[in-house]
Nucleic acid binder design. Structure first.
Length: 813
DNA sequence: AGCACGCCGACT
DNA sequence: GTCGGCGTGCTC
C-alpha cells in the first residue's frame, strides 16, 4: 500500500504563485491522474485545481484531502507540463491560470457564498421593524437566493459585510456555498441498438417494422435520426424497447463545427521550387528540433508545402499542429486541410462554441485526429507526439493575445517544437523583422518560394502622390484621377476592384466649426468616428455612442465639420461615382454577424460584387481570384503611429493587400496613393521587396536599440482614478530603479523608460501609464523583472490600480 | 480571486 | 467608547 501515491501537486485556477499539495482520500485514489482537474478546499472555499504530479509523501505537514476528481480522463498529457511551466515563467503568469487559459473554456468550477432568506427573516420582513437597508436585503432575498457579490449591484448600494453577518447570526438568512461553472461537457445522444437478431412474426405494427428495418442495416442509430428516417412517432421507439427488441443507450456525440461539407482533393504535383523546399523539410522531419522560415510571395503555394509536410509527419506516426491567423470563422487554409485530410482534422478557434471546442479537444485527446488547425489558442492542442508545428502568416499580429495571458502563439509554437523535439515551419510572404533576423543569426533556417504557381506575374504597383491632389476636395482628392480611370477600365473589362483603407466608419475626425473642439469620447482620450449607417458617433476603443446630430460640447454649436475618411465614406463616394457597379464593404461593422464574411467571399466568387471596399480584413489570406485592380486609398495611415513597429506593420499590410491583385489568369494592377512616396516603407511595398524593407528597417532598429536587438517587457499601470494611477506608476518606477541599484553590475544593462502616460492615455474610463523595460539580454531582462515582482509584490497586487506585465509587447503605445 | 483580520475616522 | 470603512495577507 505504501507505494501508492496518496498525495498530489496541484496548481489552482487562481492568481496565486506556487503550487499546493493535497492528499487523496482512499475512495478517489484510483481515479486521479496527472492532467485531470480536482476540486479542493482552499481557504474558506473550494477551488478547481490541475493535477501536476503524483507524490508518495508530502513535504507539507498539514495537507487537506481533495473533495472530488472532476475528470474521467486527463485534459492534457503530462508531457505538456514542461510547456506550461515554461510559459508561466516566461510570461510571469501564475501556472494555474496558464493552464486555465490553455484549456477549452467553461470547465472551471467556481465556489461562492449564496444567501437565502430564512423563516425568521420572512417574519422580520412582515413585521417591518428592520433598518431600510436590512429590509431591502430581505426583500431581495424573498425573491430568491442571491450571491453576496451581487447584493450591492442588485440593490444599487453597498452592503456592509457586518450586516450580512448579523442577519446570519440572528437566523434571518442562511448562507450556503454553491458551485457554479464547469458546464462544458460531452454531449450525450440517445442511441437505439437492435437487441434481437430475429424478428417476431406477428404483433408488430407497420411503423415498428419500419423502424426495425432501418436499424437492421446499421445495427444502431441515434434515436432522433431513426425517428426521422422511419417517419414514425417517438412512442414507437418506447414500445419496441418495452418488448425487448431494441435497447437504448447514451453515447457521446461530437457537436459539428463544420458549416458545410467540403469536397476531397488530392496532393498537387509540386513545382520545382516546392520540391526543393519539401525535400529539405522531409529530410529534417523526425530528426529533432529545427525552425524553418519559409518566405513565399502570395500565390507561390505555401499551403501545398504545409499540406505535404503534414502528410509526411502523419506517415511517420506523429501529429501536426497548424496555426492560422484569426481572421474569419473559416479560412481557406482550414478548408484545404479538411479537403486533403478529411475527418482526421480538429479545428480550434474563437468562432466555436464552448461545447464545440471541448469536443475538438476530446477528439485530439482520444487520438481520433492527428492534425489540429486553428488560431493562436490552438498552440495548446493536447498532442503528445508532435512531428511538425506550422505557423502560417507568421508575421500576423493576431498571434499576440492582448488579454489575460499575453502570449505570442508564434513564439510559443517554436518553444513547443523545441520542447517536443520536432519541426517548426513559419511561413509568410512578408515575414516579421524578428524572424528575418533569426535567420541571419542562424536560429531559423531559410526556405524560399520565389515564383508564383503557373508563372503568374506579380502585380504592377503604381504610386499616386496625394500631395499633388491638394487642389481637390472631398472624394476627388481621395479617389485620384488615375484610380478612377483604372476603376472604370476594370469595370468595363468585367473584372473586380478592391479598395483598401485601414479605417472604418464615415468621418474619423469631427470638429466643431465654431470653436475647433473635436468630438471626443466621454470615456476615452480618443476622437469619435461618425458612422452614418448607425446615425451615430462611435468610439472604436470602448464602443461609446452618441447621436449624429449632437452639438459641440464646449460651445453648443450645431455646425460640426466632418473630416477624415473611413471605409463607409469611401463606399458612399464610390456608389455615387459608379452607380451601375455592385459595391460591398468588408470591415468589422459589416461582418459581425456569423456567416457574413462567407457571404461576402461568395459574392466575390460568383461575381455578384464588382467593387469591394475594406479594412485590413481584406488584406489577410483570402483568395480573391477575379480581382485585377487594388486601390490603396491612403497608404500612410498606420505609418505615423507612435510605435516602433509602425513601419513594419505598414509594409506588411501594403504588400499583403497588393498581393490580392491578379491571382487569376489576368495580371494585376495596384494603385497606391500616399503622401510619402519617397518613404522607404512605401518604396519597398511598391517593389514588393521584403529584403529591401528589411535592410533599411534593421538599421533603424539597431540604431535605436529596438527589437530584435533588444527585448522588451512593458509594465502597464491602469486605474480609474487619475491621481492614484499616476502615483502608483511613479512608485513602480522608483521600485524599478531601486531594484536596479541592488545589482548594478548586472541590472545597469536594463533600460527603464518611463513611467510615462500612455499615448492612449485613457480608455474606457481607465487611465493608463506605462514603463518600458528594455535589455539586450533576454535572461537579464527576465531576471530583473522577476526580482522586481518578488521584491515589490505590493506594487503588483494593488486592488485599485492594476499592473499588467506584457512580455514582448506588440503595441508599445 | 475571495474572504478574514486588523487598524483608523464619525457616530451614540 | 463602538461601528464600519477598506488596506493587507493567506489560502495545501
Amino acid at each position: 500500500m505504501s507505494d501508492r501515491c496518496a498525495y498530489i501537486e496541484v496548481a489552482v485556477a487562481l492568481p496565486v504563485d506556487g503550487t499546493y499539495t493535497y492528499s487523496i482520500p482512499e475512495s478517489l485514489i484510483s481515479q486521479v491522474e496527472v492532467g485531470m482537474r480536482v476540486l479542493g478546499p482552499f481557504g474558506r472555499r473550494r477551488v478547481t485545481g490541475y493535477v501536476l504530479g503524483m507524490l508518495r509523501e508530502s513535504a507539507q505537514p498539514d495537507v487537506k484531502h481533495i473533495l472530488d476528481v472532476l475528470d474521467e480522463h486527463p485534459l492534457f498529457p503530462a508531457s505538456m507540463l514542461t510547456f506550461f511551466r515554461w510559459i508561466a515563467e516566461y510570461y510571469k503568469y501564475p501556472l494555474g491560470e496558464v493552464i486555465k487559459n490553455a484549456l477549452p473554456g467553461g470547465l472551471t468550477l467556481y465556489d461562492f457564498a449564496s444567501l437565502t432568506i430564512a423563516e425568521q427573516g420572512q417574519r422580520a420582513l412582515q413585521a417591518g421593524d428592520g433598518t431600510p437597508l436590512e429590509t431591502a436585503v430581505l426583500q431581495l432575498l424573498a425573491g430568491g437566493p442571491c450571491r453576496i457579490r451581487d447584493l450591492a449591484r442588485k440593490l444599487n448600494q453597498s452592503v456592509p459585510s457586518a450586516l450580512v453577518r448579523s442577519l446570519k447570526t440572528c437566523g434571518k438568512i442562511v448562507v450556503t456555498r454553491e458551485l457554479r461553472g464547469g458546464r462544458t461537457r460531452l454531449k450525450l445522444e440517445r442511441v437505439a441498438v437492435l437487441a434481437a437478431s430475429t424478428l417476431p412474426a406477428e404483433g408488430l405494427s407497420p411503423a415498428a417494422r419500419h423502424v426495425l428495418a432501418q436499424l437492421a442495416d446499421a445495427g444502431e442509430m441515434p434515436v432522433i435520426q431513426l425517428v426521422a428516417r422511419a417517419g414514425v412517432s417517438p412512442g414507437v421507439i418506447e414500445t419496441l424497447k418495452r418488448r425487448g427488441l431494441i435497447t437504448l443507450a447514451h453515447k457521446p456525440v461530437y457537436r459539428d463545427p463544420f458549416g458545410e461539407p467540403i469536397t476531397a482533393d488530392r496532393p498537387l504535383v509540386p513545382t520545382v521550387e516546392q520540391q526543393a523546399v519539401l525535400a529539405e523539410l522531409k529530410r529534417s522531419l523526425g530528426s529533432g528540433f529545427a525552425t524553418y522560415l519559409l518566405k513565399g510571395v502570395t500565390g507561390s503555394g505555401k499551403t501545398e508545402v504545409y499540406l505535404q509536410v503534414v502528410a509526411e509527419a502523419l506517415k511517420k506516426g506523429t501529429s501536426a499542429l497548424v496555426l492560422v491567423p484569426e481572421i474569419a470563422l473559416i479560412t481557406q487554409t482550414e478548408r484545404r486541410f479538411r479537403s486533403r485530410f478529411g475527418d482526421c482534422v480538429a479545428i480550434l478557434h474563437s468562432g466555436l462554441s464552448a461545447g464545440e471546442r471541448f469536443d475538438q479537444w476530446q477528439r485530439i485527446l482520444q487520438k481520433e485526429v492527428s492534425i489540429a488547425i486553428g488560431a493562436r489558442s490552438a498552440v495548446f492542442a493536447p498532442f503528445e507526439n508532435l512531428g511538425v508545428v506550422v505557423v502560417d502568416e507568421e508575421h500576423d499580429t493576431s498571434y499576440k493575445q492582448e488579454h489575460n495571458l499575453r502570449y505570442n502563439a508564434r513564439d510559443l509554437a517554436v518553444m513547443r517544437a523545441k520542447l517536443d523535439g520536432c519541426l517548426a515551419v513559419l511561413g509568410s510572404a512578408t515575414p516579421s523583422v524578428q524572424s528575418c533576423y533569426n535567420v541571419t543569426t542562424g536560429k531559423f533556417l531559410p526556405l524560399q518560394l520565389e515564383k508564383r504557381v503557373e508563372e503568374r506575374s506579380l502585380p504592377k504597383v503604381e504610386i499616386v502622390d496625394l500631395r499633388e491632389q491638394r487642389g481637390f476636395r472631398g472624394l476627388r482628392k481621395w479617389l485620384s484621377a488615375e484610380l478612377r480611370q483604372a476603376m472604370a477600365q476594370t469595370l468595363e473589362n468585367r473584372e473586380q476592384v478592391l479598395l483598401f483603407l485601414n479605417r472604418r466608419g464615415f468621418a474619423t475626425f469631427a470638429v466643431c466649426a465654431a470653436c475647433g473642439q473635436p468630438m471626443r469620447c466621454k470615456h476615452c482620450d480618443i476622437s469619435l468616428t461618425l458612422h452614418q449607417r448607425d446615425n451615430a458617433y462611435r468610439c472604436h476603443y470602448c464602443g461609446f455612442t452618441r447621436p449624429a446630430i449632437s452639438s459641440c460640447d464646449s460651445c453648443g454649436s450645431a455646425n460640426i465639420k466632418k473630416l477624415g475618411l473611413g471605409t463607409e465614406r469611401v463606399e458612399e463616394a464610390v456608389r455615387a461615382l459608379f452607380p451601375e457597379a455592385r459595391v460591398a464593404r468588408m470591415d468589422r461593422d459589416t461582418t459581425t454577424r456569423r456567416g457574413s464574411i462567407l457571404a461576402l467571399l461568395k459574392g466575390l466568387q460568383d461575381h455578384s460584387i464588382d467593387i469591394l471596399i475594406g479594412t485590413q480584413m481584406v488584406a489577410k489570406g483570402h483568395d480573391f481570384p477575379n480581382i485585377t485592380l487594388v486601390g490603396i486609398i491612403c497608404a500612410d495611415l498606420s505609418l505615423s503611429f507612435p510605435d516602433f513597429r509602425a513601419g513594419e506593420r505598414t509594409f506588411q499590410l501594403l504588400a499583403q493587400v497588393a498581393g490580392r491583385a491578379g491571382r487569376g489568369d489576368v495580371p494585376g494592377r495596384v494603385i497606391l496613393q500616399t503622401f510619402n512616396p519617397e518613404h522607404f516603407t512605401i518604396q519597398a511595398a511598391r517593389a514588393q521587396d521584403v529584403e529591401a524593407f528589411y535592410r533599411q528597417e534593421i538599421q533603424f532598429r539597431k540604431a535605436l536599440g529596438y527589437p530584435p536587438f533588444a527585448r522588451m517587457i512593458q509594465l502597464r499601470i491602469v486605474g480609474k482614478d487619475y491621481e492614484k494611477t499616476r502615483q502608483h506608476a511613479l512608485q513602480l518606477g522608483e521600485a524599478c530603479r531601486a531594484c536596479q541599484a541592488v545589482r548594478p553590475e548586472e541590472f545597469s544593462r536594463i533600460d527603464i523608460l518611463g513611467p510615462i502616460e500612455a499615448s492612449l492615455s485613457r480608455i474606457a474610463e481607465q487611465y493608463r501609464w506605462q514603463i518600458l523595460l528594455k535589455g539586450e539580454e533576454t535572461r537579464v531582462l527576465h531576471r530583473f523583472t522577476r526580482r522586481l515582482m518578488a521584491d515589490y509584490p505590493a506594487d503588483f497586487a494593488d486592488r485599485q490600480v492594476i499592473v499588467v506585465v506584457d512580455v514582448d509587447p506588440y503595441f508599445v503605445m
